[in-house]
Design a protein around this nucleic acid. Structure first.
Length: 587
RNA sequence: GCCGAUGUAGCUUAGUGGCAAAGCAAUGGUUUCGUAAACCAUAGACGGCAGUUCGAUUCUGCCCAUCGGCUCCA
């Protein structure tokens, strides 16, 4: 158990206070659970109707209760006695919890004499120890009882709580700051993407600026994949029902797919994943062990009919393009191939994007879910293979049960958006079922047909989600190679427009690979600079009489606030180097 | 999909049961300027459909979209 004064105990005690307060206003509220979470606590209630506007009075009541200096007192009751207690109080959820605990004795906690709750423990001794200036009820949300969408939906009240007022304020400030780099806000300001009601929810439109980011990543990914031994393939966006019956997506996945187009020769589906199509390419000719491993890469656009309530900017959409590839190999090759995929991730995340805040999740099947195809032997083998590989890789990871794909265990790269929402950035699956389902085989040395192993990998996940994450990661200030607009040339007045145009031409040179814009508008320099900073333009080149006379450029690097003098040649070569080395703000 | 909230011009916001206000952006003009917002003028909006009402942007219902969660997930 935690120390009495620990932050966990403080947060948990607040959860009890919250329940006490809610019961005062809503005596018929049914109590769910009230655990400690990152930054605070929550409590679930059934049979109440609460809006965010009710939170202040509930919070005020909590303070009032706390100021009564109530003791938290824990007792062990027999399950029978506790069950009887909650039966009398008409608390079905608590009753269910006691039943499921299957323990002889359960912990019961008094908050003074006022409120008696089922609880494992972890409180402060007395409510007077609670830092009343360091907590705040933050939001109301719906949550299914025990996380099961078939069970009733309860009302969850979230609170933030810390040891000191200062920490709470720091947390609230951070939340507000994080919102400023929300990709939805920056995406609009930087004109990266948009949605149109006529197109549909979750179907993003890439504006020219966003498309540049997308294309640059894609262009580089193609180079990288070529280096790492991948071949590119391309497949159509739809396929007949037969393919998805073969893959097993129907019935397992049907509800997440857009409904079929009914045509003369049967039903056609929009593809929700690329694998089945790619497998058809593997199958298009007989395979020998000599060819393996085969690595097919595809930028594939897929459509998934996600629940409307889960859509969120570019993080969660209904149509997206994956940086996908499938590796076909023998069992003996699995380890090396998978390890290389992990290395490829490291290359992208750490080296290219400077992302260090992610963790790997080894997602294993859960034993009791029907969703997973039944093939215990293969599962066992694939699972132990992956566990062995992850151990060998030396990369930090955690195992989570029940998160596997229906065709195999996987390693997910989990990232957090600035607002704290956790998402899977990339997923890597070891698929032992495809061989059987799609009849994917190769002739081994003995000339016998052997089943092939398939590794699904997409280090950059979907463009949509990955770029959403990058926008927040960089706060919109993309490194030069990704910046939609790299250089603005700012003439001080109309007089210097010809010079500005000349500078632009020289910067572009023969290759015309740079993205340079002359801001000819009749505005003050101050205003153009302000706009440049707000648009996160990496370099602003200021041209006036001084520059004309000295034949030097005045360069203002993004968010530096001062200019440096540089010759045209020097600036040009530094810019080109920065782009090719994919570094961030070297000037 | 479920629970809760929100929806006023391109954006950020004000406001009302009786002609809807402003800043930025846009457009036209003036100004020709040295490091985060020059000046003047013009144009532009109450998410959609019903209902209540003499009259609805405002009240009610339904729908749509978005936001915070749950579930799900790249």
């Amino acid at each position: 158990m935690e120390k009495e004064g620990s932050i966990e105990n403080i947060r948990h005690s607040f959860a009890h206070l919250l329940a006490t307060s809610v019961l005062k206003f809503y005596p018929k509220a049914k109590l769910g659970i009230g655990p400690v979470i990152e930054n605070g606590f929550y409590y679930d209630f059934g049979d109440i109707k609460i809006a965010e506007s009710d939170l202040p009075r509930i919070e005020a009541e909590m303070r009032k209760i706390a100021s009564l200096n109530l003791l938290f007192k824990k007792e062990l009751w027999t399950s029978q006695k506790a069950a009887l207690h909650f039966k009398k109080l008409k608390q079905p959820y608590k009753l269910e919890l006691i039943k499921d605990l299957k323990a002889k004795k359960v912990g019961m906690v008094y908050t003074g004499e006022v409120f008696l709750d089922l609880c494992r423990g972890g409180h402060v001794k007395n409510t007077k120890e609670l830092p009343l200036q360091a907590f705040k009820l933050t939001s109301v949300a719906g949550a299914y009882w025990r996380g099961d969408e078939k069970r009733p939906m309860l009302t969850r009240i979230y609170g933030a709580a810390f040891a000191t007022k200062k920490e709470l304020e720091q947390y609230l400030w951070q939340q507000a700051e994080a919102k400023k780099r929300d990709h939805r806000i920056l995406g609009e300001r930087l004109k990266l993407f948009a949605f149109a009601p006529e197109v549909g929810p979750g179907l993003p439109l890439w504006l020219p600026n966003g498309t540049i980011v997308r294309d640059e990543i894609e262009k580089y990914a193609k180079e990288v994949e070529k280096e790492w031994g991948y071949q590119r393939v391309a497949t159509p966006h739809i396929a007949k029902e037969d393919l998805y019956k073969m893959s097993g997506h129907i019935p397992y996945y049907a509800e997440s797919m857009y409904p079929p187009m009914k045509l003369d020769d049967g039903n056609y589906y929009l593809k929700a994943m690329n694998c089945p199509h790619t497998h058809m390419i593997y199958r298009s000719q007989p395979r020998s062990y000599r060819e393996l491993p085969i690595r097919y890469a595809e930028y594939g656009t897929v459509y998934r009919y996600e629940l409307s309530g889960t859509l969120a900017g570019l993080l969660r959409v209904r149509g997206f393009t994956q940086n996908d590839a499938h590796i076909y190999c023998t069992e003996a090759q699995v380890e090396e191939e998978f390890l290389n995929v992990m290395k490829l991730h490291e290359f992208w995340y750490k080296k290219i994007f400077g992302i260090n805040d992610f963790y790997m999740r080894l997602s294993l099947p859960s034993k009791n879910k029907k969703k997973y195809a039944t093939m215990p032997e293969g599962w066992k083998k694939a699972t132990s293979l992956l566990q062995g590989i992850m151990k060998k890789s030396g990369l930090p990871y955690m195992e989570v049960e029940g998160e596997a794909a229906f065709y195999g265990p996987k390693v997910d790269f989990q990232i957090k958006s600035v607002i704290g929402r956790e998402e899977t950035a990339s997923t890597n699956q070891l698929d032992f079922l495809a061989a059987k389902r799609f009849n994917l085989a190769y002739k081994d040395q003995a000339g016998k047909d052997s089943p092939v192993y398939v590794i699904h990998r997409a280090p950059l996940g979907s463009h949509e989600r990955f770029i959403a994450f990058l926008i927040e990661h960089y706060a919109g200030a993309f490194p030069l190679w990704l910046a939609p607009e790299q250089i603005w040339v700012l003439p001080l007045s109309d007089k210097f427009i010809p010079l500005a145009l000349k500078v632009k031409e020289t910067l572009l040179g023969k290759d015309k690979n740079l993205r340079v814009k002359v801001r000819e508008e009749n505005e003050t320099l101050g205003k153009k600079i302000r706009e440049g900073e707000l648009q996160k333009i990496p370099y602003l080149v200021i041209l006036g009489e001084r520059e004309q006379n000295t034949e030097m450029l005045s360069i203002r690097a993004r968010s530096k606030g001062n200019t440096v003098q540089m010759s045209m040649q020097e600036f040009s070569s530094r810019v080109i180097r920065e782009i090719s080395e994919k570094t961030h703000g070297t000037l």
